[in-house]
Design a protein around this nucleic acid. Structure first.
Lengths: 258, 258
DNA sequence: CAGACCATGTGGTATGACCACAGGTTACCT
DNA sequence: AGGTAACCTGTGGTCATACCACATGGTCTG
């Protein structure tokens, strides 16, 4: 649309070619891509250009590569958006393109919507599958033995899995992947924030209780309660950890990049 | 955590190095990266590996490159998440990692939240800047001259800009970028759906009226009305265009990838 | 002083040469 | 005949080199 670049770069041609093959169905998840050398010869570009395109696709979560020979080797189409989302958002936060408070705010919107949808599903007699989420809760609650240190990092990882599994329970992979990316983009802040807590033991215990409350609200089919419980759960942790979103969105926050 | 790969690939090292420099602030938006040859020498890798990492960063919207010499040349750090979001989501839809109905559903969540937040801001006397959105509406309404064809593609592009500008009005760039990605990932469906409409003239006229209604609801400070107007706006178009989301999220949708 | 010229350094690309790896095949020994 | 070791082949991963097009800035020339 820009009409400025008559001269697309070689790796973009490769990318476009693969995208086209994905769109027309000649390349499906699980399929092997031609070898790098073959692809280069077919498209009339150098192997390095092919590799640059494949690297992009790999980071975006569209393919995986294995060396060696056999059915597992080569580049295989997959579709795992979470990894790409995580890379993208993590780097954007690092480069100050995303503000942490905006990430938190967005997460809040999506998570409350997820909880609300699940509760509505229960109310509408379309019972979502909450089993994976419950299994994660069980795992969280057996891990912190009184004798052992609570290992906040592991706990937070399970917490992330719990929220992710709720999103997956809605069947909406877009939300799930986005949440996963949002989460990992501020992961370092979450773990660093543990130091700001008065008592990790108390906080983790509270979090576990809140998880059960979220599930209970969903299972009761009360969307409002489900939304509220999720909102409180997330907001309070970030507040305690010391990097909650500002009380009002889009109050002036100052420039962040030119 | 996987402990499986003791042997990170060279381009990942480059990526990690740049990410680290972003995190510690030694690389800020607007800064130049060292030249590819220098970077390769400094990190002890080949130039092609550096280029693979830079390609990833470029697609992710983290940097732009220019040939030649002078202050504009080389690789410069930027932070434009929209482009990366668009590439990621577009390709994930192409590879069947994202279902179109999930994209629509997610867009609905974010857009209604945006409208709601803006209305709440008005109600709370924190007037958001709706001027950019209004200017786009003006542009939309002068474009379709009766003498000229309505040019649906241009109209839809302006429509996308309108919704994007609403997201930007909240100040939340995460939402704005995500919405931009969602939108572009199903852009081809949107334009193709025009053919399913009974009358483009009628639909476009309705859409323009709904845009004004959305603005009015926001300016009246009524979050519920704002949310409802956005929901109706989006839902109805997709329904008319023939690829709306199913009436209920997470009803069985069939397998999409193994 | 103005304009043409070229030296320099940038990204963009292609090519060739290796390496490690993993599976399949073959040959060999028991 | 069976099992096992060797090797052959093709994969991605990496590097080095050699170009190209390009844009700037300095220099030379009129």
């Amino acid at each position: 649309m820009t009409t400025t670049a008559p001269h697309t770069r070689a790796w973009q041609d490769v990318l476009a070619h693969i995208e086209q093959r994905l769109l027309d169905g000649s390349l499906l998840p699980g399929d092997h891509l031609p070898s790098e050398r073959t692809l280069a010869a077919d498209l009339g570009v150098g192997r390095s250009s092919v590799r640059e395109a494949l690297r992009v696709l790999e980071v975006l979560g569209l393919l995986r590569t294995h060396t060696g020979s056999g059915p597992e080797s080569g580049a295989i189409i997959i579709a795992r958006p979470s990894g790409g989302m995580s890379s993208l958002m993590r780097l954007q936060v690092a480069a100050q393109g995303f503000r942490v408070e905006d990430v938190v705010s967005t997460r809040l919107i999506l998570e409350t919507a997820v909880a609300g949808q699940l509760a509505e599903a229960v109310a509408g007699d379309r019972m979502p599958d909450l089993l994976p989420a419950l299994e994660i809760l069980d795992a969280m609650e057996v891990a912190p033995q009184p004798a052992e240190p609570p290992t906040p990092t592991e706990f937070l990882a399970l917490d992330a899995q719990f929220h992710f599994s709720l999103a997956m329970a809605t069947g909406n992979e877009v939300i799930a992947a986005t949440m996963s990316g949002l989460r990992s983009s501020i992961e370092s802040y979450s773990t660093a924030g543990v130091a700001n807590l008065e008592s990790w033991a108390a906080t983790s215990a509270r979090l576990m209780g809140e998880h059960r409350a979220i599930i209970a609200a969903i299972e009761s089919g009360d969307p409002g309660a489900a939304r509220a419980s999720v909102e409180g759960h997330i907001t309070q942790y970030y507040a305690e950890a010391g990097f909650g979103r500002p009380e009002h969105p889009f109050t002036p926050k100052g420039p962040h990049h030119g």
